[in-house]
Design a protein around this nucleic acid. Structure first.
Lengths: 113, 113
DNA sequence: GCGATAGTTAAGCAGATGCTTAACCAAACC
DNA sequence: GGTTTGGTTAAGCATCTGCTTAACTATCGC
């Protein structure tokens, strides 16, 4: 099992590359073979494989080989971890800004009287 | 102005490092000086500055120098861009899985009759 | 069996990252 | 005006990334 910090490291790192985001985008619409993933990309097949490995290593993608074809599909759980981290941060600062807003409003109220 | 792809590259990359996520986490709770950001971290001040630069470059953090202290605060907009990308992907695959679910349910219905 | 197809492994390389130390600058303090 | 405090710049270095090409393996279709 991957610890939380390392999981986030890997997931955000995986998403920081446009090629990998493209692959995730493609797979969001449905499963695809390695070849199908590679077709729109302007790079060698081994390069595509390496990107795929990164996506698999962080759990964003699962793959399964049947015959000579490897089929790739999205595994939503890893994405949820990343999403959740962002959501938590937002919750924290929004709460804080709300409090600040209330405070300023009160100040203003006070000034009007 | 940064184009969308490059903005996502930079933002996800910035978030892929635990030190930088720590800084963002700290700043979510409120503004801090460079020194305050550095205090809990086990690394030199220049290293902290370099992490801070990454966060500023992708727009996750704004800074302002008054006298000799530089105050840092988060700038929520960049985070929203990243969050939105994830949300869009999720929308796509959830729609797809829903359709798939309906299809399977229909199949099942059909089988029962 | 034999060639075409789909993917895999290995080695190597240019450039980016994440640190370090050393030297430096400017506001604040006394 | 000299010293501390808070931050900055520059240079250097080990490691990691994202590719490449070359060589290889395992099916599939005939």
């Amino acid at each position: 099992m991957l610890n939380q910090t390392e999981a986030l490291d890997r997931t955000f790192h995986a998403l920081s590359d446009p090629t990998r985001r493209g692959m995730v985008k493609r797979l969001s619409r449905g499963p695809a073979s390695v070849g199908e993933l590679a077709k729109p990309l302007d790079m060698s097949l081994p390069a595509v494989l390496q990107h795929l490995e990164v996506l698999v290593a962080c759990g964003l993608v699962r793959t399964e080989k049947i015959g000579r074809v490897r089929t790739c599909r999205i595994a939503p759980a890893a994405m949820k971890t990343a999403e959740q981290w962002i959501t938590e941060r937002r919750a924290t600062w929004e709460r804080r800004l709300d409090r600040l807003g209330e405070y300023l409003a009160e100040q203003h109220e006070g000034g009007k009287r």
